[in-house]
Computed example of a mutant assay.
Amino acid sequence: MIFRLDERLVFPDPELAEDDGLLAVEGDLSPERLLLAYHNGIFPWYSDDTPILWYSPHERFVLFPGELKISKSMRQVLNSGRFTVTTDLDFESVIRACAAAPREGQDGTWITYEMQEAYINLHRLGHAHSYEVWENNILVGGLYGVAVGQVFCGESMFSKVSNASKTALISLCTSGLYNLIDCQVHTDHLTSMGARDISRKEYIQMLKS
């Protein structure tokens, strides 16, 4: 059963999600609703031709900073001084670049204009953060997400040159600010860096703690 949200700031129990993780539809992207969602292991994921869709997957693809794996070649990149990394310096440019970045097997982006504006608002309120990667003072990579205590819910990343997004992720993991990085979408390169699946129950327990 898919739940239809109204103006009330409530979500159904995440355990009631469908097999694909879909839990509810409609509602809005107000800061209050977004924060309530993230604190309960729920996130929006939809496109321009659908209503707002809210998901809570049965398994979460996450990275524990202490389990981060950095290859020898990547360490050489980090030690070369090629990139400069900043935090929250240009959130808007990062989310726009993530929205514009092509995704394999996708015609468009799930980071709709409405989504961009909602997360820019969250950033202004101090809940969403970005990591920017610069090369010769040009923004070449980065990521953004929402902080829930010591859990960082990663939303998207982009890279215009090789290893830029990896540099952003490594900077996030080594910042000492978070105990868990929610990577959401399973990828082979994140698996190679130490990301793995945990159950929704374990994930939500970490959010609550």
Rank of each mutant, 00 (worst) to 15 (best):
T112V: 12
L9D: 11
L53H: 10
T87A: 14
E67P: 04
D188P: 01
M157L: 14
L177Q: 15
H186V: 13
Y131H: 11
I70C: 05
I120N: 05
T84C: 06
L122W: 02
N79M: 07
L63I: 07
F64S: 08
I111C: 08
Q116K: 09
D6Q: 12
R60P: 03
Y203D: 03
K201N: 04
A101D: 07
D28N: 14
C183H: 03
T86M: 06
M115K: 03
E104R: 15
I120M: 10
E32K: 09
L34R: 04
R82T: 15
M157F: 09
D107N: 11
G141D: 08
L34H: 01
G141E: 06
L63V: 08
L180A: 12
E132V: 07
R103S: 09
S162P: 10
S80N: 09
D49N: 10
E202F: 06
H39R: 13
I42H: 00
D13I: 12
E92P: 05
F64D: 09
T187M: 07
S162F: 02
G145E: 04
Q184E: 10
L139N: 08
L78E: 01
C173R: 09
D88Y: 04
S80Y: 05
G126F: 07
I181P: 00
D49T: 12
I170Y: 01
E117V: 11
V25P: 01
V185A: 13
Q116F: 07
R60W: 05
L180I: 09
Q116R: 15
L68R: 08
E104Y: 13
V133N: 06
T191R: 12
H123E: 04
A100E: 15
L36A: 04
Y178D: 01
Q205Y: 09
N121V: 02
L172C: 02
N136K: 09
D49V: 10
D13C: 13
D48A: 06
S165E: 13
P57D: 03
G176H: 13
V133R: 00
I120K: 13
D49H: 13
A24V: 06
